[in-house]
Each structure stands twice: as C-alpha cells, then as structure tokens.
Design a protein around this nucleic acid. Structure first.
Ligand SMILES: [Mn+2]
Ligand SMILES: [Mn+2]
Ligand SMILES: [Mn+2]
Ligand SMILES: [Mn+2]
Lengths: 219, 219
DNA sequence: ATTAAAAATTAAGCAAACTTAAATTAATAA
DNA sequence: TTATTAATTTAAGTTTGCTTAATTTTTAAT
C-alpha cells in the first residue's frame, strides 16, 4: 500500500475525474489537498513512476487501472466507516467525515470487510454516495440532479449531499433535511438563485451555494 | 498531538517504565521499535525539546507529566479498540493487536470516548491489561504473577497475556487458554523450565518463553 | 588504575513530503 | 503573429524520520 499522502492524492484525482469532464489538473488537486502546485507536480512524477497515474505534462492526470483500484479501496474504507460511525456508534452527520478521513488510512482489508459484513454490505453511505464492494465495483446509482436544477412547484426526495463541511451537515440536520426526505420546491429568486423549499411543512430558503451541494432523485 | 512516530516512542517508554525497575535505555526503545539507536537518540532530543521526556545523556529516559498523559491516551485508544474489535466486530484474539496499533493513531477524543461508552466503560482489554479512563486514570489491578512463578499442583485463573505475537495468541486460542479460565499446574521440568498444565482437563506443555507471557491471579 | 568492551551519542547522508522562487509551456488577446 | 498572461513544472531548500559510520562516555575486566 502507498503512503497516506499518496492515498489522498489518488482519491482526490479519482473523485475529480468522476464529477468533471475536463482533465484533472495539478492545480485542482493542489487546491483540494491544500498544498502547493509544486508539491502536486512532484507527487505526479512519483505516482507516475509507481504506475498509478499517467500524466501528460501541462495537460492533465489520469488514473491507471492500478491507481483507480487503490482510489476505490480508500473510498470504500471512507464510506463504510462513515456509515458505521453513524449507524453503530451514533455519531452525527456532521462528525463522521473528518473521522473517516483519518480512519481510511489505518484500516486493513480484513477489518473493512468485517465492517462491510457487519453493516449488511450496504450500497450507499450516510450522505448518499455509493460504496464500492470488496472487488472495487460500484452499485448502479439512480439518476439524480442538484437542487439548482429542480423545477418550482415539484416534489422531490433527497438523494445525496456533499459532506465536505461539517458546519453544513449540522445545518442540514437542524433543518430536518436528510436522505429520502420529501421536499417541495416552493419558489426561486432570480436575484441570487436562492431556492425556497418546504421540509416537514416548514419553509426554508437555501442559497445557490448550498443548493449546489444537495441532490434529489430526478424521477 | 504529536506525530505517529512520537506517539509510538512515548508509548514504548511508558510501557517499559511500567514493567521494569531499571532506567529506560535508548537501546531498549530502539530494539522495541525496530529502529537504530541513533534514531532513538535523536528522537529523545526532540521529545525532550517538546517537554515530553527528560533525558539524562548516557543514563536513561523518563516521561514528564505531559509525556505520560499522551502515552496513556494512546494506550487507552489501543486497548479500547482491541476490546471493540473483539466484542463488537468479532475479530480474534490474534488479530486485534496489529489493527489497534494503527487505529490508535487515527482516533479522535470524541470517537474513543464514544467507543468507551458503547462498551460500558470497561476496565480491562481482551488480554487483561488495564484501560486508562478518559482522564488518564488506571483502574486498580489485582495482584498477578507470571506462570513461571506458579507452584506445582496449584489451581490458578488466567489474568493476562502479553499480546505482542499474533501467532502466540492463535496458539492460546487453540489451547482454550483464555482470560478467567482455570488451569492446574501439573508439573515443571528443571531441564528447560517448561511447565505442564491442564486446561479443560487436557494436558499441555508450555515452554519457559511462553510461560513468561502468561499471568494468573496470585490469589 | 588502566585498558578493553559495550552502550550511547554525534556526524553525515538519504527519502518523503512539503515550501517559495525561478523557469518553462500553453492560452489569449492585441 | 506576436506579446502578454496564466498555468504548470523545475529548482533549491526545509523538516521529519530514518540509516550507517565515527566518536564519546560508561562499565567491566585485568
Ligand atoms: Mn466523507
Ligand atoms: Mn484521508
Ligand atoms: Mn495490543
Ligand atoms: Mn502504534
């Protein structure tokens, strides 16, 4: 297994490639990991030597099959830990991401498979992201759209949230916004692209920035 | 919090001080952590600068109050994880030490206290070692003696085993040798200081080296 | 008390993972 | 097309944590 640093780089590259069509740039990875571009360029060289990425200079980074396999292993560990911490140990939506960010690098194959079985081989983590199985296969995921793309007046069910900010997770918890919960889009302001929606018959207004981080089933 | 390396040094120093009257030497720590004496001398300098140990050159190492506090935190994490992995996730006696050795460095205060509560604030780990509480206090421990000190013909109960070798743990499991289990010392050979004892009415012979790693209540 | 052996420290150097600053390549605009 | 700007890489240097080799200190033996 690679070092913790390498694992974090691989995971970041994988997740960027998943959610963007543009090539994965060193500067994106650098900003995501909060290191310098120089550090990322150097690491790209090393990961390339390791056969985990291919890197065309000044263009972009792509994972090799080996690199993707490792990235998926780390993501598997991360997501299973998040679910375990919530389901078994009762941590909150806002607490689990940071814990998982550390545990994902200290978890053996044996342990993560044990946790997987303990949880009944779940397919999704507590934020709605798919969990790779022990062979690196992702479950088929239903079609989802960001709240920003929703139609006024329609009813939706929460499918996924981005979990990078614990502050935001805590806010969602206070709102009662959770997976599978029904919401209705009441209104949207052209002025700032904010959206008014009802959760449990209570009305809330969410900024565009927040709406970009909430996804619903597109039906 | 210190680095993983520093945590491992502090833990090793603490545990040596607990189980030996002689000063904690750099060479002991080095051999235990499987690094060079030079590495340990250098680390001693740094830990000294950090105010975590006091080190009289060519004499020995002692933990400061701060150093001991951190050591006890790591030991707490280690032992609670071991118990959790066995009790909750069903790992075996032989599997948990190596897992805990990693997890102890990736576990927040919040998480370990949650685990502690989940387990009902246990006082001993699965190998019979005491678990420091969240304030660093160790439970009072009953008097125990190594198997090597036991009297022939007497009956004892297993109180503790040293868990450093998973091979040995697996062997104990096969023998049925577990905590609180009753054993009878049947015989001992002057020739090699091996001991013959009965567990569940089956007779086994254990080498001196093995007996040094098994403790019973001294009644 | 001297000397030899053992233990511990210091010196010198390496690899990993960073940094800032300089150089290079690519993109864009005149 | 050429010049400017932006993105990226390379260069040079730091810190952490390790190594082996040399030196120093302590201990043990004669
Ligand atoms: Mn997460
Ligand atoms: Mn991580
Ligand atoms: Mn252990
Ligand atoms: Mn450890």
């Amino acid at each position: 297994m690679p070092t913790i640093s390498k694992e974090n780089y691989l995971k970041t590259i994988y997740q960027r490639a998943q959610t963007s069509n543009e090539p994965v740039t060193t500067s994106y990875v650098a900003s995501k990991l909060e290191v310098s571009n120089a550090a990322t360029s150097e690491m790209a060289k090393k990961l390339s030597d390791d056969g985990l990425i291919s890197h065309e200079k000044y263009k972009g980074i792509e994972l090799t099959d080996n690199g993707r396999e490792i990235a998926l292993q780390i993501i598997r560990r991360h997501r299973l830990w998040e679910l375990f911490l919530i389901k078994v140990l009762g941590l909150s939506w806002g607490e689990v991401h940071d814990e998982a960010e550390m545990l994902e690098h200290s978890t053996s194959e044996l342990l993560i498979n044990t946790i997987d079985d303990y949880l009944g081989n779940p397919k999704f983590d507590p934020h709605g992201s798919p969990i790779p199985d022990r062979f690196g296969n992702l479950p088929v995921t239903p079609a989802i759209i960001a709240l920003t793309k929703c139609r006024t007046g329609k009813k939706y069910r929460i499918a996924k949230v981005n979990d990078k900010s614990s502050e935001l997770m805590n806010y969602f918890s206070r709102l009662g916004l959770e997976l599978e919960k029904e919401i209705v889009i009441e209104d949207r302001l052209e002025f700032d692209n904010s959206i008014t929606l009802s959760i449990d018959n209570r009305i809330h207004s969410l900024s565009e920035k927040i709406c970009e981080n909430v996804y619903v089933y597109s039906n």
